[in-house]
Amino acid sequence: MDDASVPHPGTSPRPGSPQPGLPHGALPHEFDHTHADVSGGWLRAAAFGAMDGLVTNTSLLAGVGGAGLGAHEIVMSGIAGLAAGAFSMALGEFASVSTANHQIDAEVKVETRAQARHPVSEQTELVGTFVEMGMSEETARVAAAEVHRDPKQAVTLHLTHELGVDPTEKPSPLVAGASSFVMFAIGAIVPLIPYLLGFSSLVAGLAVGCVGLMVVGAVTAHLTSRPLVRGALRQLMFGLVAVGATYLVGLAVGVGVTG
């Protein structure tokens, strides 16, 4: 490689100039890899909602079926469980994310007040943070001074390093709540599919619910770059524990009532 194409240590390529080892001056994330959006809050809420819907309603069907109820009662219980669970999940996610965001906003106020009262100490603290990251003290002092020229940026950087939270990338409560509602409803309706198609077999409903658990486990594993089979079997195992336990409870209650 021509030495002229290699930047001198301590210098950075000019904007728009070709960079060594990268095609046409592109950055690695533009051609080699991409990152998923992990800041919106939708993926966790959607995955949790789908899994919870499947486990809840499959277990509910197992419980009422174990108690000896008929197909009509099972379907009514499943639909009621779907509605109640979807609204509960949505409101819970909305409240949870909103509370977390309010807490972050409170910490922003605390940090802003601290920087207004003790600007030198706060800047010195950032110097120490940069030194711990591997900068020389001289470079750290220059960098900290640059950062503190913008008060908002200084607050963001302090909170990111001190709390591990970026106050400019808060998840949306509405997105989390809506994702949770929709995915819970989808997951909850899966074990009801055989009944809605005219079948009245509890075994068929539970089997379809278990297949749904495996599918959701595999999809979640794919989105998080984990082995698909392991993710599917892991979710199925957790679901079977809940379904089996609920069936036994329903069976015991049914025997007790009829007895």
Rank of each mutant, 00 (worst) to 15 (best):
T129K: 06
Q103M: 09
N101D: 11
E111Q: 14
G16S: 09
S136H: 06
S17V: 11
G128D: 12
N57L: 12
G66Y: 10
H118P: 01
E111R: 02
A47V: 15
T129M: 15
L69D: 04
V64K: 03
D37F: 00
A26H: 09
R44Q: 08
A100M: 12
S17G: 04
T156G: 00
Q123W: 02
M133Y: 13
V131K: 15
T129Q: 14
D52R: 01
T58I: 08
A143H: 08
H158P: 00
V64C: 06
S88K: 04
Q115Y: 00
V127Y: 04
T139G: 02
G21A: 07
S98Y: 10
F94D: 02
I104F: 04
F48W: 03
T139I: 12
E138S: 13
A95E: 01
E73D: 14
G85M: 04
G25H: 07
G65K: 05
I104D: 05
E93F: 02
G49P: 03
P151F: 09
A84L: 11
T129A: 12
Q115P: 00
A154C: 06
S77N: 07
G70P: 09
M76H: 03
L60C: 01
T56N: 11
I74M: 15
L82A: 13
G65M: 06
E73S: 14
A26G: 03
S59E: 05
V120S: 03
A83L: 15
D105A: 15
H24F: 13
G70W: 09
L27W: 13
D32A: 15
A80N: 09
L54V: 04
T34E: 11
G134S: 13
S59W: 00
P18E: 08
G78F: 06
S96G: 06
D150A: 08
T139K: 08
A154I: 05
D32V: 06
L126G: 00
Q123G: 01
H102G: 14
N101Y: 05
A140G: 11
L60V: 12
I79C: 07
A45H: 10
G63Q: 05
H29I: 07
V155T: 13
G25Y: 05
L22G: 00
H102M: 12
F94G: 14
T156L: 07
T129D: 10
A145Q: 12
A95D: 02
R149W: 00
G68T: 10
R44C: 07
S121G: 08
G78M: 07
F87P: 11
H148K: 02
A71S: 13
G92P: 02
N101I: 04
G68H: 14
L91H: 01
V55R: 07
V127D: 08
V155I: 10
L43N: 00
V120W: 01
D150R: 08
R113M: 09
G134H: 12
Q19T: 15
E122C: 02
E137P: 01
K152I: 07
L82K: 08
H148F: 15
A62Y: 05
R149E: 15
S39A: 13
A145N: 09
H102Q: 13
H72M: 05
T156R: 15
G21P: 06
T34A: 13
V64T: 11
V108P: 09
G81M: 11
A116E: 14
K152R: 08
F31H: 15
G85V: 04
G49D: 05
T112E: 12
G63K: 11
P23E: 12
H118T: 10
V108C: 10
A106T: 14
K109D: 13
S88P: 09
